[in-house]
Nucleic acid binder design. Structure first.
Lengths: 114, 114
DNA sequence: TGGACCTACCTTGCGTCGCAAGGTACTGTG
DNA sequence: CACAGTACCTTGCGACGCAAGGTAGGTCCA
């Protein structure tokens, strides 16, 4: 059960993968970079153990493409880019997200006036 | 992997339980009633196999209380009510949800202008 | 040269959850 | 008495988050 401390853990579910897609939409990025960027988002913080398997799944699903490139200092990096079907999936999520968000707002309320 | 058909399945994760809490916030409700009400929400549809175990978890977590009552026609119903700590959890979710929602809007965009 | 450290990748194991399918039982109707 | 409707719950499977553990390339400095 999601006690209060783990609340945001399961909130991320189903959203994180599309945040990743959005993150590589305009620019190729590599795994560790993505992990660090999510670390800056308090509502979305996710560790290596979450991001790397997620990137593999997105690659297998054909939504991401990857190519190796050398690092200016350190081991080589695997850069990810959005594929055509990845872009389509992201677009589809955007519309799905809007209606989902509205439904939740309506059902649980946000403290604002209805 | 969440293909497009299962997209909303995992979106629900982490949200559904609080929609349930919100649903019994102002009025006691029983399981089948909750299932039917979610059936009317296209973004949240969830079946018995999801709702009943969820209700049990919420009860074990101390967020819901239940009492049996006879039905005007049919087998007895188990009515659920929000406990004090359930109410606190729901309030906590409401603030968490608002910031989560904003983060996702910002990261994936919604098609609206930034 | 060699040790310490950083960066970068990935896997293993555990626990949780959604959900289709299957199961039990009470009630009213023909 | 059979049947259909209502209402509850469980089982088994697959997917996922994530802490922890593992490998390896690169730089720095003594």
């Amino acid at each position: 059960m999601a006690d209060v401390a783990q609340l945001s853990t399961s909130l991320r579910r189903g959203t994180l993968e599309f945040c990743v897609l959005a993150m590589v939409e305009t620019e190729d990025r590599y795994g560790n970079e993505i992990v660090r960027r999510f670390g800056d988002e308090p509502s979305l913080a996710a560790s290596e153990g979450t991001i790397y398997p997620l990137l593999s799944r997105l690659r297998r699903a054909g939504w991401l493409d990857s190519k190796w490139a050398e690092s200016p200092a350190g081991p080589p990096r695997r850069y990810y880019a959005l594929t055509l079907s990845g872009r389509a999936a992201l677009e589809h999520f955007r519309t799905e997200w809007v209606s989902f968000r509205q439904t939740v707002d309506r059902l649980v309320g946000t403290g604002e006036v209805a």
